[in-house]
Design a binder for these strands. Structure first.
Lengths: 160, 160
DNA sequence: GCAATAAAGAAAGATAATTTCGTCTGATAG
DNA sequence: CTATCAGACGAAATTATCTTTCTTTATTGC
């Protein structure tokens, strides 16, 4: 169970994953040692699954972000397998969700430009046996984009 | 321009954003100081836009992930504004993309359970003036999910 | 070749992480 | 009501790491 200090730690590190232990301790209102022990616990118990540097896509020449809705011929494992292999080996595909609704998978894809996207689509995805069709939504602007989870909904342990 | 050391640094920190400078230096094959200077440069020049702790959604009671396709009545700024305000104030909405295709916006949403999702939908989004309709795809499984950008496509500077 | 520039490495000084230990608070059983 | 125990905090000492400075090594243009 998490108390308000734990939640503050998670919130602070979601925002800045490289806070030093001292800064973190100041921010949440504990001293050095207990803050450190709590953080280790949160890491050990996998509340925190990792730390990631966030890069600027534009700066590294990734100008196209798209969501591809993929429909499959059927849902037999041997039909899905070649597709999933491509997905897992393709670094431009950041996310693959098996979804409810009209299509079977939703992919989040990042590429340098439209040509690269087209190439990925027509030479990789559409070549996969089992893939019936792909319909693309291009992300043109991102009024909001964050990786933070909402922590406001969490039940709070003691120490309130 | 980035050379192979810079790219290794970006790749390593995308994977583990809390590598110490020493570990990073070992990994990329430079000594302490130059590795540190390169990292600072990459931060200063905003190749790295930030560091984030990655939480486990299941552990903190966020069990529903969904993509909401939103259609608006029209594209006048005064129509969009109330919707975008809700989006920006709603912590459950992680991403809002203005997209090409059949709908206007694609939202990535995370909630505790289906009830919370329904509440968000019917009491917040669908109440917004200007929102014509919302169609939801629930993410049931994630065969792949990463936050890493592909760095293989980058042109490499000298020092090859 | 030789100077000038740019980046690497070594080492020292400054800063921060991690451990240890003593203390306090609150719960529970006698 | 008090004694005991568990759990967590904080101060301080130790260890490790970061950050700077200075020197050395490559590379480029003249």
């Amino acid at each position: 169970m998490l108390d308000k200090f734990d939640i503050s730690i998670l919130a602070a590190l979601q925002n800045n994953g490289r806070l030093s232990n001292r800064e973190l301790a100041d921010k949440i209102g504990l001293s050095n040692a207990p803050c450190w022990r709590r953080l280790k616990r949160l890491e050990d118990e996998r509340y925190i699954s990792g730390y990631k540097a966030e890069l600027d896509g534009k700066k590294i020449n990734l100008n196209v972000m798209a969501f591809a809705q993929v429909s499959m011929d059927n849902h037999h494992p041997e039909t899905l397998e070649p597709f999933l292999t491509i997905v897992s080996n393709c670094p431009e595909i950041q996310e693959c969700h098996s979804v409810s609704g009209d299509c079977d998978y939703l992919l989040k894809v990042v590429t340098r430009d439209l040509d690269s996207y087209d190439e990925l689509l027509s030479h990789k995805l559409l070549q996969a046996k089992g893939v019936r069709s792909v319909s693309t939504m291009f992300s043109m602007r991102q009024p909001k984009i964050t990786r933070e989870f909402p922590l406001t909904e969490l039940p709070i342990g003691d120490a309130t």
